[in-house]
Design a protein around this nucleic acid. Structure first.
Lengths: 210, 210
DNA sequence: TATGATCGTGAGTCGACACTCACTTTGTCA
DNA sequence: TGACAAAGTGAGTGTCGACTCACGATCATA
């Protein structure tokens, strides 16, 4: 159960070795794209056969590219994380005072409500492996937005990164499983954002939480 | 007013028909108890065989009592909902102004963090069936607390029940999947509770944007 | 205690799915 | 264009888990 010992890994970009044949590269990309759609629809329990079928390849081809279903899921997740990180960079160049963090959270939750991918993958795929790097990058990006928002006075000074991440994952799971409609989603986010903004009227909220 | 009304359900208390043999009743109860523990540990994907083994009965026995794994899950969920509703009633007789709602949410999230049951069942079990009644009762109870909290000025007037439920489920999922420790849990809840309390005017007047 | 209905039993069936491999097809490069 | 390695193929394998059923064990009642 330790596939990660070959000199270079086949499940990702071919570092410095073989350039990957043209048809292979084409198939690999189609498989990832299709798999993302399938898993977004049915969750990670969707069968590899369905992915293969929709991609128009034999199941063996899928397993040639991704030796394990887990590897396929991780490839998708890695792409997703990278996209989110990009989005983060785009927002970082934003105009408004310190609202970028809210925009980002809203965007991710919105996406989570539509696709199972974000949430379920983040939850059910092991995070231990090669996605750790991209995940850290994402975390860093969010932290940047958080600090900026705090400097702008948009978010309470005492809010920490792990709390933001906790809220983010919670909101995503909620949006996914409970199938929030757009309106409910907006209103729920507003409450949470209010909590992030709110003045350290902490006398009440800190003291008497249970 | 007699609550027993369904024509006949085998998976629950036998309303007016057969009294269920002594050994059968004993086994049924042990199975439910054990199943709750097993599913709390491993989630609903745990096998029925494991439940049977830990309960010290043959797998056939489990299926004799609960014709379907789904039925077993629902029986557990029904019990859980009823317990939560009871807890709600207990809180309703509470002393503090309008804090009961917060106490309840904190309690549920706490439980969710420890056991997979609350969350995963609430999410993955179909809610359509015989749990609908208990679920409605729970919802009503939460609404009572919400209204009371609003009358006491503890929660913003414009917060609606579905938002509270959305936050509750989101927080539960977050607590479960991300494995929040007690401290993070407390801090995250504080933020959300702050959002439920805080006047929107104060938060917005600052920048007056958005 | 006898007797019949209710329960319990667990090997077996069925289907789903991840993964393999011997063989064929195709791209690439001399 | 020929030759070979890389890539594709898909029937087959192994496993796991939900659910069944024919039969034996056990409780409740006369």
């Amino acid at each position: 159960m330790t596939p990660a010992k070959s000199s270079s890994d086949r499940t990702d970009d071919p570092g410095g070795a073989r350039p990957l044949r043209a048809d292979a590269r084409r198939n690999r990309e189609r498989i990832i794209a299709v798999a993302e759609a399938v898993f977004a629809e049915k969750g990670p329990s969707a069968s590899t056969e369905e992915v293969a079928a929709r991609a128009g390849v034999a199941i063996g081809t899928v397993f040639k590219h991704f030796p394990t279903k887990q590897a396929l899921l991780q490839a998708i997740m890695k792409g997703l994380l990278e996209r989110l990180t990009e989005e983060l960079s785009a927002l970082a160049a934003g105009s408004r005072p310190g609202e970028e963090l809210f925009d980002f959270v809203a965007g991710v939750v919105e996406q989570a409500a539509q696709k199972r991918t974000v949430v379920t993958l983040l939850a059910e795929t092991g995070v231990d492996l090669q996605v750790a790097g991209p995940l850290q990058l994402l975390r860093d990006g969010i932290e940047t937005l958080l600090v900026r928002a705090q400097k702008a006075g948009t978010v309470r000074e005492d809010v920490r990164l792990d709390e933001v991440l906790a809220l983010l994952t919670g909101l995503c799971h909620g949006a996914l499983h409970a199938g929030w409609d757009t309106d409910l989603q907006r209103r729920t986010l507003a409450i949470v954002f209010g909590g992030l903004r709110g003045q350290p009227d902490a006398a009440r909220s800190r003291g008497s939480i249970r």
